[in-house]
Design a protein around this nucleic acid. Structure first.
Length: 340
DNA sequence: ACTCCCACGATCAAAGCGCG
DNA sequence: CGCGCTTTGATCGTGGGAGT
């Protein structure tokens, strides 16, 4: 121990100079020593978090939403249609997609496809790519979605990405794998993507669940791995494993319209009208509420509002009169009174 | 007086379960 | 399939008690 030797070294934490009093004396003070441990621990948790997200990311392409994302991105040909997404908006997109399936109903376990996520500014419009964002998507009847074709105006800047501004490094080619597509999307969105992924719950698909249950029953994994859902269900039936097959009717267009109007145009007059129309058949004071509209015309007027609603949601030209009656003269200012 | 250690509750993510 | 609810597991800050 060179007790008499006075060597001054820099503390690796605060960079301040100090003289070590013994070998292995690394930090200038207890505070710095602790701070150093804290930093090491923070580094460790950061690495762990990254690992957790990476594991989740691997599974993403096997989930229904992951597949949807890949499909839509490939269709667009660029991950830039994800422009402006945040953790929250990505979450909303997930919700919107599942909601679309729910209102469509299921037939033998498969979504009926009654409704589609319709682009307001067309996916591949005249001036650019419609954004894959809840702002630019509407749950709409399939027939309506298919009938409008590519549409969009060049002043809907918030809804699309200009063709000339698309960058080559964000472009996608049809031969790319799902993992490659998602990797690019993640790279493009950066932290918001990981933040969202961290909160996104990945649930095992029915296929994965069945495979697991069948293995528990003694089946060999190697025999199950290539089978599709229907084949697995058949095996499960033999093994007396209960399988649920989703089966439900699609929801009525008017109810779905009201939901979407509330989401996209919460303060519109059309929404108010639609809500009254929706509730009027349960009302005890119909006569007080109706103004120029006749009771026998309610059904036809509803259909009119429905059609105009889908058009309005797509920012298309709308008619504000039905058989000479302006929308705002359908009803008086009296609130609906429920029959119950 | 100070460090070290562990219990404790709060919080959040992941996995499991049951239902329609 | 999608949802709500529960269980399990990991992490983190606080604080008291034991030991030096």
């Amino acid at each position: 121990m060179g007790k008499s030797v006075q060597i001054s070294v820099a503390c690796p934490v605060c960079a301040g100079a100090f003289s070590p009093t013994r070998s292995g004396h690394l930090y200038c003070s207890e505070t710095c020593r602790k701070r150093h441990h804290k930093q090491e621990k923070a580094k460790e948790t950061k690495v762990k978090k990254a690992r957790r997200i990476a594991a989740k990311f691997k599974k993403l392409s096997t989930t229904p939403f992951g597949k949807y994302l890949v499909r839509e991105l490939k269709r667009a040909g660029s991950v830039e249609v994800l422009r402006g997404h945040t953790k929250t908006s990505l979450g909303s997109l997930v919700k919107l997609r599942t909601r679309c399936n729910t209102v469509s109903g299921y037939d033998e376990g498969k979504p009926r496809g009654t409704y589609e996520l319709s682009h307001i500014y067309a996916a591949q419009g005249e001036h650019g790519l419609g954004r894959l964002h809840p702002k630019n998507l509407v749950i709409a009847p399939r027939a309506f979605n298919r009938s409008i074709g590519a549409a969009g105006s060049d002043d809907w800047l918030d809804l699309y990405v200009d063709y000339p501004l698309l960058e080559n490094n964000w472009k996608l080619t049809p031969d790319m794998t799902a993992e490659q597509v998602l990797k690019l999307a993640r790279k493009y969105l950066k932290e918001p993507f990981d933040d969202w992924l961290s909160s996104f719950t990945i649930t095992a698909s029915q296929q994965q669940t069945l495979i697991k249950k069948l293995i528990e029953q003694g089946y060999k994994q190697s025999n199950l791995i290539g089978l599709d859902l229907d084949e697995l269900k058949e095996l499960a039936a033999n093994a007396e494993i209960e399988v649920y097959t989703a089966d439900s009717d699609s929801e009525g267009a008017f109810a779905v319209l009201c939901e979407e109007l509330a989401r996209q145009t919460p303060n519109s007059e059309l929404l108010s009208m639609a809500l009254i129309l929706k509730g009027i058949r349960w009302a005890s004071n119909i006569d007080d509420v109706l103004f120029r509209l006749k009771e026998k015309d309610i059904k036809a007027a509803t259909e009119f509002v429905c059609e105009q609603g889908w058009r309005r949601l797509h920012r298309m030209q709308c008619e504000s009169e039905w058989h000479g009656i302006p929308l705002n003269e359908f009803f008086t200012g009296n609130p609906l009174e429920s029959e119950i």
